[in-house]
């Protein structure tokens, strides 16, 4: 704790200590957040942190108070002495918080005043993550605080090189990527999100069985689960390799391959027991399920725009609904015959 005397009033400036080392607890917490466990309450306290042994000339890095964000920044800072100013973004990452405005000019200006940053450092420069830019107006922050805002690299792993090269970002550091690994770490939460609706669907099928409208069995189960995994895991992972541009289309295409495979594995068309109605029902339902889930991955991707998503959805959403409704009807009719 530093003590400063302002006028007659003694004002404590609270500075918290942190380090570049992640503990087992931190890593376990990150894993849990990826699976949706305690994810919406994974926060650190907003305010000023000391990493290493910073002095009045050390750089000030600004970040969000989602713990996964804070940890991924500090683990890249080993061997450096820096200040970290954590904004209160309600436990949301920099990019989403910037879109909402919680990682924004107002919060930044207020937080700087609360921690009295102008008394702690002698220089007048802040380093913000580039992905915070949609929420922050650099020239306005400068106007109100006198601090110059420099946007650092997109990814925390480049921050050390950025600082050591005198705050110069290469075009590479400025570009938002979306690698196989980036996409893969997002798939667990996509899958977890499907569990609840899937259980409801299984419940309905079970009731239909009890009412004698079935039987729905193993083929329906694994066919559906396959469509789900294609939509929320396989399509995201293979994203740039699937032909076409719209996400729903990409999911539908893989789902179609799957539906044909399920039909073929169960003896269609050679097995006369396997009716055309059922085969057609699967072809209408499974690709539509995959398409819907793949479409929802637009929100996790780093290269979709609202205008693009709206355009895609105007076609995809009605098509998906019609396809699923007709497909379900065909399957039900088939179980009557």
């Amino acid at each position: 704790m530093n003590m400063l005397t302002i006028g007659n009033m003694k004002k404590e400036i609270k500075i918290m200590q942190t380090s570049a080392q992640l503990t087992f607890q931190d890593k376990l917490g990150a894993w849990k957040a990826r699976w949706g466990i305690n994810r919406m309450n994974y926060k650190v306290e907003p305010g000023l942190y000391r990493l290493g042994n910073p002095n009045e000339n050390s750089p000030v890095l600004v970040t969000a108070n989602y713990k996964l964000t804070f940890d991924s920044l500090r683990k890249e800072l080993s061997g450096l002495d820096t200040w970290i100013l954590v904004l209160d973004t309600k436990g949301i990452n920099v990019w989403c918080a910037a879109g909402k405005g919680t990682f924004g000019s107002n919060e930044l200006i207020n937080r700087m005043a609360i921690v009295q940053l102008d008394k702690i450092v002698a220089h007048r420069t802040l380093i913000l993550p580039q992905l915070g830019a949609p929420g922050v107006s650099a020239h306005e922050v400068t106007k109100y605080t006198g601090f110059k805002v420099i946007y650092g690299p997109v990814r925390a792993k480049d921050i050390k090189e950025f600082i050591q090269s005198g705050m110069k970002a290469t075009p590479e550091m400025r570009t938002l990527k979306f690698s196989v690994y980036d996409r893969l770490v997002l798939t667990p939460i996509e899958f977890v999100g499907t569990i609840k609706p899937s259980l409801i669907i299984f419940g309905v099928l079970f009731l239909l069985n009890l009412m004698g409208l079935g039987p729905f069995g193993l083929v329906d189960f694994y066919g559906y689960m396959g469509a789900v995994i294609i939509g929320c895991v396989l399509t995201p992972v293979l994203l740039p390799f699937i032909p076409g541009r719209a996400f729903a289309w990409k999911g539908w295409l893989l789902g179609l391959v799957w539906a044909i495979l399920v039909n073929w594995l169960n003896g269609w068309p050679s097995n006369p027991q396997y009716s055309l109605l059922q085969a057609l029902g699967y072809v209408l339902v499974f690709p539509a399920v995959s398409a819907f889930l793949a479409m929802n991955f637009t929100g996790s991707s780093t290269y979709t725009s609202l205008s693009g998503v709206l355009k895609e959805m105007r076609i995809a959403v009605p098509a998906i609904i019609i396809s699923i409704v007709i497909g379900c009807l065909l399957i039900l009719v088939n179980s009557f015959i």
């Binding site: 949706g36 990452n93 939460i189 999100g193 991955f297 929100g299 996790s300 998503v309």
Partner: peptide, 28 residues
């Protein structure tokens, strides 16, 4: 550019915004 946000805005009215408190992977 988030379909889940658009669906939510259709159902509840208002602008699509990044609010993943009810699942979805974007805010992680």
């Amino acid at each position: 550019g988030c379909a889940a946000a658009v669906i939510k805005s259709w159902l509840t009215g208002g602008e699509p915004s990044c609010d993943c408190s009810s699942g979805g992977g974007c805010c992680s």
